[in-house]
Every structure is written in structure tokens, then in C-alpha cells.
Design a protein around this nucleic acid. Structure first.
Lengths: 212, 212
DNA sequence: GTATTAATTACACTTTAGTGGTATTCCCTA
DNA sequence: TAGGGAATACCACTAAAGTGTAATTAATAC
């Protein structure tokens, strides 16, 4: 005991060797497995029982590192995966975190920082550079877009539109709002004109654009 | 030039003083404003023109630090806000990042790390501890919820449903998928049966529930 | 004080959506 | 190989949605 068990999933021999030497050469860390492909990792990694797995995104064969993590999550929750890659675009970062990676470091990370990242993840943190963190939170801070479409509508019309969004029939809406079905028709017709559409779904898509 | 302009929004005099002394006492940083309340900050901060604002969450008066950031975003995009608080729960973190904060540090952060965070944010990073980062990504990987409704549908049916979502008419869908309008009807009827609904809007609401 | 606008109702009409039944082909599996 | 699901297609029918025009009232704006 007393050491963190590390597995490596990395196709490049040189990087793989570098990582395992780094890990094994440091007190408190032990490299318990190293795989060249996702396939090899998935069939053997559970037996190796690492605490932490360093996973490359770009792997040979059909399974990417991201998919590898995704599938690994179906096998066990005991292995925490850190993506270790040269790819730094938002899409890969996002996909990796969604797959269940707890950290994301780049291959240019200096060796001592890699060990820090391993310890960090082991202690319940999520190692990533603040540059990467910025990209991560980019997904949160939804564009402060104001909905110009909705503003075109009167409050009554917005009320009607909300009913449309819930899928209510004209008759039901009329009953709920205590107005005649003809008025409902008229309101909705006005809404469609203002939004420049001609169907319920189009109106909803325009007024409440899907965020992602 | 040559220094990062910092504003402070913090109700506690002691902390405020500590931060301004820290910032002003370090080469490359300058405290250009310090406010006790969100209200004061919102009316004056744009004129002070800081690069970075350190914002507490818990502020006296009606406006919290999070709402302060939210409103500030409607005034300018030039000020990057870092939350500096003692609150560390996921909800606050998430709300802050959604409001537009680019970083999240705690008051227990040592002074030098606070300066690092400011520089970090200034350079396009998102300063936060890896513990906080873990909570952030928790929102990503958290709901491994599979959409059981969508799974009931065959791939062809899902294709049809996607067309419905875009607001296409039956005739248009038929043209796009090279099938007859009657087949479109049939598919959609089957979809409605599987989802236990009887209208386009209901089907979409059930198959693609709004996440918020 | 008059013009505009939102909200309301009405009627007639066209188009689209949704229901129910039947049938063929293909593919997969028990 | 018999059955089942999925995809395709057609028909007849009903229900709902959407269009066009017109008119009244109340509030608001100029």
C-alpha cells in the first residue's frame, strides 16, 4: 500500500515508456499496466485494478480513448481516468468529460505536473490547466443572448405561445384562458405573423431556440 | 499600462482591505475600485474599467454576487469576473459559472495564489482549484441518463422525429426521405403510439425533454 | 382628441395533421 | 419456417390547425 496504482493507455511506445518509467520511478506511484489499444485495456484493465488510468484520445483500432472511457464506465466506477493527449479543442475536452474522464492534461505537461495530476485525481480533484478549464466553463455560460423574437410578442401572446409549447389544443387553451377558440386562433395567427412562421413547431423553434 | 486593473466587490471591510493592499502592493497589479455592494459596483464599475473583478457571492442588499455578474454581463463583456467566496457547494459554483464568472476561488486561497488567479484569468484561463473543477465536471458526466423514450423508436422513426422537430411538413419529409406521404403518416402514427401521445408537440416534448 | 395598438369575437374557408384499417416486402430470430 | 418487427404504400375519414377578412372595445400614444 501507500502507492497510487496507475494504468496507461497509449499507442505510442515512446510516450508509454516515458510515462511508465516516470510513474515507476517515483515513490508513491506504481504503474500496474500499460496498453497500446483501447481494446487491450478494456479486456484487462479491471484485473490490473488501477486507481488511475492515463488515457490517450487518439488510439489505433476502432475505439478511441473517449469511447474507451465510456465503455470502461460500464465495467467499473473504481478507475478514474485522466485524458492525456495533444488534442486541446473544446469538442474533445467536452466529449471526454462527458464520457467520464475526471481530468484532462496535455502531453506537453511537464513530468512533475503529470504526477501532480495523478495525485490530484486520486484525491478527488480534476486536474486540468486553467486554459482547459476556461473551455469547459464555456459550455456553461450560455451565450447571454437575449431572445429578440420573444420580445416582439405582447405578454398575452407570450402566454399563448407558452400554451402552444406545452402542446395544448386550441380548445384547451381557450378553456384555460377563458377566451373563445376564435381568439386563440387570432392570437396564434398574430404570433406566426410576427415570427414569420406558419406552424406551431416553427414558432416554438424560433421563440425558444434549442440551446444544445 | 503594464498592470492588470482589478476591481473588488466584497462587503467585509477586512477582506476588502486585504485584497486591495495585496493587489496594490504587487508590481503589475492595480486595484482601481472596491465596492461594498453589488449595487455600488454595477453603477460605477464600468467607469472604473477594470480588467478583472473579484466578486464575493454573499453581499448585503438585494443583489448577490452571482446576480451582480449576471447584470454586469449585460453592461459589458470587457470585465472578467472571478468569484472569491467561502461558499464551495456545487450549486453556487454552477450558478456562478452560468452567470458568466470565469474563475472561482475560495477565500482561503493564499495571497500569492489569488494573484496567480488574477493573472490566469487575464490570460484567458479559468482559475479554480482542481477540487472545484471536479464539481464542475460533475455537471457534465452527472446525468448518464439515457433517453428511454427515444430508445423505443427505430432508427428510421428517430429520423422522422428529427424532421418533425425541425417543423417540416409531411409532404416535405416525404420528399426528403424519398418515401410517400402515406408512409410518413404511418411512421409518425407509430411514433405517437410508442410514445403514447397524439400530436407533434407532445411527441417532441416527450422525446426531447427540455433540460433547462 | 384622434390615431394606434392589444385584445377580443365571429364566420367562412383551405390545408395539414392524425386515425384506422389493410397489405407487401425484407430481415431477423425463436 | 413461422412469427414479429420495421419499412414501405394506399385509402377513407375525422380532427385540428392555419388563413383571410371584419368588427368591437379599451388602453395608450402623440
Amino acid at each position: 500500500m501507500g502507492h497510487i496504482r496507475v494504468a496507461i493507455v497509449e499507442d505510442q511506445l515512446q510516450t508509454r515508456e516515458m510515462l511508465s518509467v516516470l510513474v515507476n520511478g517515483t515513490d508513491g506511484y506504481k504503474c500496474v499496466a500499460a496498453y497500446e489499444t483501447a481494446e487491450a485495456a478494456l479486456t484487462n484493465i479491471v484485473d490490473a485494478n488501477p486507481d488511475i488510468a492515463l488515457v490517450d484520445i487518439h488510439l489505433p483500432g476502432g475505439i478511441s480513448g473517449i469511447d474507451c472511457i465510456k465503455q470502461l464506465r460500464t465495467l467499473t466506477d473504481d478507475i478514474q481516468c485522466i485524458i492525456c493527449t495533444s488534442l486541446e479543442d473544446s469538442d474533445h475536452i467536452f466529449a471526454a468529460l462527458q464520457a467520464g474522464a475526471v481530468g484532462y492534461i496535455t502531453k506537453s505537461t511537464p513530468p512533475v505536473k503529470i504526477l501532480d495530476a495523478i495525485t490530484d485525481a486520486y484525491n478527488g480533484g480534476s486536474p486540468m490547466s486553467s486554459q482547459i478549464a476556461r473551455k469547459v466553463i464555456g459550455y456553461f455560460s450560455a451565450p447571454p443572448r437575449i431572445n429578440t423574437e420573444l420580445e416582439k410578442l405582447s405578454s398575452r401572446e407570450q402566454e399563448l405561445l407558452a400554451c402552444l409549447a406545452k402542446g395544448y389544443r386550441y380548445k384547451v387553451i381557450a378553456g384555460m384562458l377563458f377566451i373563445s377558440i376564435e381568439t386563440v386562433r387570432k392570437h396564434i395567427h398574430n404570433i406566426y405573423e410576427k415570427l414569420q412562421v406558419s406552424s406551431r413547431t416553427d414558432a416554438l423553434n424560433k421563440a425558444y431556440p434549442k440551446n444544445k
